[in-house]
Design a protein around this nucleic acid. Structure first.
Lengths: 266, 266
DNA sequence: TGTGGAAAAATGGCATACAATTTTCGATAG
DNA sequence: CTATCGAAAATTGTATGCCATTTTTCCACA
């Protein structure tokens, strides 16, 4: 029953995800949510063979998108009744969705004061990037050994996609391709817990990284690092791939901290 | 078929009664349930000193304990109505609690089939231990640099506690002290995301590690490794502490896999 | 004995009501 | 005018009943 090697193939439109849909593969895709404008995925009735995801998870997805898209801003309080009216669902599934997002770290639930959008301080962001660094490092270590040749080819293809987006100066596509590459490497690790944990932390950083990508002048600097990463993967150089991935997160912090105006980058 | 009313009663009679006090200290990021005093309160609503924590979180804590104590066995289905009667709460907070636990990875929610206690296969357990390894490794790296002298002393004190329990051949106390030591090192990292992520994965392995500890003949073998770890910490040898902690999880896998009867330890 | 399908049971979801708590805001005193 | 206290309003927490959907059980029937 293991769907081991299929992550890249079906990775985009994953069906049911039991442990909360942490996958942002389809984030801000064309026909996406746009929850604030009245039409919302959370309440669509029967889309063509529509995925029968539990309403709670669809609501969670809608809120996730609203957070990442800054329709819900960090620190902002989420009022249950108001949001349930906007999303056109009752409070019950909405509250369950908020519980999910709380466990994912995207919102914080204060007793009797409701949920607020997580607003991590620079130091916390740095900490999360550190964790992400060791996780990707482990993933690289495993991927270099266990990846199939097809998977490595797919990573290279994604790399070219990213180059295409870079050439077109399309930051959004560039960012998405960048994320895809890292997810692809993670999936090569064959370690579900690793993939899931990485997705969780990554989700907590998604918004700030997206903002950083939009604003940073050196937004393309990851290209060279990705070249090295790709070479290490193709050479199946476990140690080098591991080290490069961890260092990669270091330069991510450099860019993020610049945007945040942090003085000492520790 | 409904052995409903026996859950709690069993819990009070068996040897695990003290067990609730040891698990998940500081598990939830905030407003920690502190199951030591909160667990049974869920079944006694009228207890003195009105519960200040939302019922949902107390229920989640109660279910956590039931899982770890094997009152709810891996793979067992959790019936909402039955369990809500046992805990004497309505379905609403119970369902929210199950959502929480699902996000924590202790239960799995299948659409229209309800929640079942997570039952990871050996391969998944190995994967989680790998993740735990790099997390503790990072924690050691940071702790060696950032820990205060007082914190290091406290780790040593905990080490002596563990030795005491070992000498008395008290496996439960030994296990608890062991966990405490690792949590103490984690807290020295000053990295909330790291601590929280570690707690999450650790919770998923708590039951199997406890069982392993109970059954393994070489249950004291971690003593020597802990000696080395302690020395590296006191010498503030970042690299060595990091490496030792990761290797430590390797030997944990050796013990767990032996219990599970896994042939190749990969 | 095997299969189809109806009945039963369980979960998914909604709405309402009420309790507990926080927040708001106005009245009063200094 | 400001500060503080407290009642009212708003918001979250919990319980309950209801129905829809899906799964499971199991009995009739071939």
């Amino acid at each position: 029953m293991r769907k081991a090697g299929s992550y890249i193939r079906n990775g985009m439109q994953n069906e049911f995800v039991a442990f909360g849909a942490l996958c942002y593969a389809g984030f801000m895709t064309e026909g996406s949510v746009s929850t604030a404008q009245g039409d919302q995925a959370a309440t669509r009735p029967d889309d063509a063979g529509g995925p029968r995801l539990p309403l709670t998870q669809r609501v969670a997805g809608a809120i996730r998108d609203m957070i990442v898209q800054d329709q819900l801003k960090p620190g902002e309080r989420i009022r249950e009744r108001a949001l349930s009216e906007v999303l056109k669902v009752s409070r019950t599934p909405l509250r369950e969705a908020l519980k999910l997002l709380s466990a994912e770290g995207l919102v914080e639930i204060l007793p009797h004061r409701g949920a607020v959008v997580a607003n991590p301080e620079p130091q916390e962001i740095y900490g999360k990037l550190q964790v992400l660094g060791v996780l990707e490092s482990l993933a690289g270590e495993l991927a270099a050994v266990q990846a199939t040749d097809e998977e490595i080819s797919e990573v290279r293809a994604l790399h070219f996609e990213m180059l295409a987006s870079y050439t077109r100066k399309n930051r959004l596509e560039y960012f998405k391709a960048n994320q895809k590459i890292h997810r692809a490497i993670l999936s090569c690790s064959r370690n579900e817990a690793l993939i899931e944990t990485h997705s969780r932390i990554n989700a907590q950083l998604y918004r700030v990284r997206y903002q950083s990508n939009l604003r940073n002048r050196k937004w393309q600097s990851a290209i060279e690092e990705h070249e090295d990463i790709l070479h290490a993967l193709e050479a199946r150089d476990s140690g080098r791939l591991s080290a490069l991935l961890r260092a990669h997160l270091g330069s991510t912090w450099a860019k993020v901290s610049e945007m945040l105006g942090v003085s000492g980058s520790e």
